[in-house]
Design a protein around this nucleic acid. Sequence first.
DNA 1: TGGGATTTGTTCGTATGTATT
DNA 2: GAATACATACGAACAAATCCC
Lengths: 229, 229
Amino acid sequence: MSTQQNRGDAIYASLRQAIIEQALKPGVKLPEDQIGEAFGVSRTSVRGALIRLSAESLVEMRPNRGAAVATPTLEEACDVFDMRRTLEREVVLRLCRNLSTRAIDALETHLGEQERALMAGGPRSIRLTGEFHILLAELTGSATLAQFVNQIVSRCSLILAHYGRPHSGECGCEEHARLVAALRERDAEAATRIMEHHLGAVQSRARLDGGENDPDVTEILSRYVRAAS
Amino acid sequence: MSTQQNRGDAIYASLRQAIIEQALKPGVKLPEDQIGEAFGVSRTSVRGALIRLSAESLVEMRPNRGAAVATPTLEEACDVFDMRRTLEREVVLRLCRNLSTRAIDALETHLGEQERALMAGGPRSIRLTGEFHILLAELTGSATLAQFVNQIVSRCSLILAHYGRPHSGECGCEEHARLVAALRERDAEAATRIMEHHLGAVQSRARLDGGENDPDVTEILSRYVRAAS
DNA sequence: TGGGATTTGTTCGTATGTATT
DNA sequence: GAATACATACGAACAAATCCC
């Protein structure tokens, strides 16, 4: 996760944020030349950034055909959300076992920022609600868990960009507050229940019910194919 | 996870296997020139492979100072093993909920290979015991979970190379067999208990008790530092 | 089917930064 | 502390593959 190249780092971070904030939407091509020109660098640095993003499944690189923002299938999307539930459940359980007062302070500070940003509106609010989940994971003290949560939350943002209903913000702020309250009481049962419900609400904002976006022609047609007499 | 560059792919896979099989031990420098020469390619392809490996925390890249096989700290090592427990517990739970007969067949086939390899001895045995855990994760049908398990098991191999007692094989084969038996019965309680015990045994082969390898001078000295008069 | 335009895959040269004597 | 040796960061150019007309 740490910084590895000088310029590649900046490009990586920028592209990542653009994807997470849904400015670069799934399927958008990412030509090395064009990106390099935008950043004022050559393709070499861009390439490194794209490789790192593809390792996180945020972009897809097809040999000789270039990179594009990943377009997760319905199956992948469901899988990612399931994994997110698994990981964040673990986060909550660990936090209930061991949570410092400093950590609770940090959460409530962040909560305040979220509320202010919500009133102000704008993309800042969307980003903060996502970062709340990452902060939770970091407060467990497990760098590995935090890294996995970071990855999976990012992928969820990507999925919502692809399958999400229009104007669906990521999270409701009130549930975050209720979760922090449960954590403060070390109430693992309530905390996991709230988190589960919360993530269910997030997931429900995606049309993962086999809906109508991005129809896979092959799959659709396969239902109509008959054996040639 | 999928293939992204033509030559980088081969280098990535080779380096990864070498690290997992503990042929390249933690701390070993990985100069781009030298690796490129070994593979008969230029540094560019090597660079891509190193970037991918660093994204998996198998190598560390320090700016302007090159890449080296990662040298996890004691804290990281414990963290990674904890995460492995979490993930593999989830694997077992999912498998108990939903396991096809084909899957059981695959497990038993693999089990047979492990036993034969164990009798034959050699590095093949070490690799297979690790791959058993990856196979388990794949059989859940969750690509994401499988990918995370793959990463974490690889990092555990690296840790055992660094902190492991000499000649400590990864796993005992019998416990794998007992686990498969429990899975066949859909006995979640027994399966998780066996997995937990099994991973505890693996972890215990590492000297993660704050032992004497690779002493961190700074950390040691910090216990002796006093405020200057 | 074919040819030109575009983009990727790769190599290599140069500059910059780090370690060493 | 300076100079040398060395490895990396970056960029430009060539070759090969793909796309488009």
